[in-house]
Simulated assay, not measured.
Amino acid sequence: MKQNSTLGNLPNPSAAHQRDSLPNTTGATREPLLNEQQAAEFLNIRPGTLACWRVTKRYPLPYVKIGRSVRYRRSDLEAFAAAREQGADDLAQGDE
C-alpha cells in the first residue's frame, strides 16, 4: 500500500497535543523576561557589570540564555536585591 506523500509530512496532531499538555516540571514561571539593559536599570548598574558577574560567576544571579540573548526574571532580580539588603538591625548588631 502506497502512502500519500502529502499526508506523510503532516504533523501528528495527537503528538502535538501530548507535548502541549505535559506538566511544566522545570519550575519556571511564565513571567516576562527582562533583557540585559532592563535588568541593569532595575539594579541601577551598568549592563557590563551584569556581564562581568555572569562570566566570573561572582554572584549567583540566575539568567536565561535564548540563543545569544541573555534574559533575567524580575523575581530573580528582586530576590537578589533583597538578599543583599542591609538594614539598621544589621548595623546595630555590629556595634555590640
Rank of each mutant, 00 (worst) to 15 (best):
residue 56 T to M: 06
residue 30 R to N: 15
residue 62 P to T: 07
residue 29 T to G: 15
residue 92 A to P: 01
residue 11 P to L: 13
residue 27 G to R: 00
residue 1 M to S: 15
residue 54 R to G: 03
residue 87 G to R: 15
residue 63 Y to A: 07
residue 12 N to K: 08
residue 2 K to V: 14
residue 13 P to M: 12
residue 67 G to Q: 04
residue 94 G to F: 11
residue 16 A to M: 09
residue 24 N to S: 09
residue 91 L to C: 14
residue 45 I to E: 04
residue 6 T to R: 04
residue 21 S to L: 05
residue 48 G to W: 03
residue 5 S to V: 12
residue 83 A to N: 10
residue 89 D to K: 09
residue 57 K to A: 11
residue 45 I to Y: 01
residue 24 N to F: 02
residue 54 R to T: 04
residue 16 A to K: 07
residue 62 P to E: 08
residue 30 R to D: 15
residue 21 S to P: 00
residue 73 R to P: 02
residue 61 L to S: 03
residue 44 N to R: 02
residue 25 T to F: 00
residue 38 Q to F: 01
residue 87 G to D: 15
residue 22 L to C: 09
residue 70 V to P: 03
residue 71 R to M: 12
residue 3 Q to D: 12
residue 88 A to S: 15
residue 27 G to P: 00
residue 3 Q to T: 14
residue 96 E to N: 12
residue 95 D to L: 15
residue 66 I to Y: 00
residue 31 E to S: 15
residue 92 A to I: 11
residue 34 L to N: 01
residue 13 P to K: 07
residue 58 R to P: 01
residue 27 G to I: 01
residue 83 A to G: 14
residue 12 N to R: 07
residue 61 L to P: 01
residue 64 V to N: 09
residue 34 L to R: 02
residue 90 D to Q: 13
residue 79 A to M: 13
residue 34 L to M: 11
residue 19 R to I: 06
residue 59 Y to R: 07
residue 63 Y to T: 04
residue 24 N to Q: 07
residue 71 R to N: 12
residue 46 R to C: 08
residue 20 D to F: 04
residue 71 R to C: 13
residue 61 L to E: 02
residue 76 D to E: 13
residue 71 R to F: 11
residue 61 L to M: 09
residue 50 L to M: 08
residue 4 N to C: 14
residue 13 P to G: 10
residue 20 D to M: 08
residue 84 R to I: 02
residue 53 W to R: 04
residue 30 R to M: 15
residue 93 Q to N: 09
residue 51 A to E: 12
residue 3 Q to A: 15
residue 74 R to Q: 08
residue 21 S to A: 11
residue 89 D to L: 11
residue 86 Q to S: 14
residue 7 L to T: 06
residue 1 M to H: 11
residue 77 L to T: 01
residue 68 R to V: 06
residue 45 I to A: 06
residue 87 G to K: 14
residue 66 I to G: 10
residue 24 N to A: 11
residue 19 R to G: 08
residue 41 E to Q: 04
residue 1 M to V: 13
residue 10 L to I: 11
residue 35 N to K: 05
residue 57 K to D: 10
residue 67 G to E: 05
residue 75 S to C: 15
residue 61 L to K: 03
residue 6 T to K: 04
residue 85 E to S: 13
residue 67 G to I: 04
residue 21 S to H: 08
residue 77 L to I: 01
residue 13 P to V: 13
residue 59 Y to D: 10
residue 72 Y to L: 00
residue 75 S to L: 11
residue 80 F to G: 01
residue 66 I to A: 12
residue 73 R to N: 05
residue 49 T to E: 03
residue 83 A to R: 05
residue 52 C to N: 15
residue 83 A to P: 02
residue 50 L to Q: 01
residue 16 A to S: 11
residue 14 S to L: 10
residue 75 S to F: 05
residue 4 N to M: 06
residue 51 A to C: 14
residue 20 D to K: 07
residue 87 G to L: 11
residue 73 R to M: 08
residue 22 L to T: 09
residue 32 P to D: 09
residue 65 K to H: 06
residue 15 A to F: 03
residue 40 A to V: 02
residue 4 N to T: 07
residue 4 N to V: 06
residue 80 F to W: 02
residue 84 R to F: 03
residue 3 Q to N: 13
residue 5 S to H: 09
residue 33 L to T: 12
residue 73 R to I: 05
residue 36 E to W: 00
residue 95 D to Y: 08
residue 82 A to C: 10
residue 64 V to Q: 10
residue 65 K to C: 07
residue 12 N to P: 03
residue 63 Y to L: 06
residue 94 G to P: 00
residue 54 R to Y: 04
residue 46 R to Y: 05
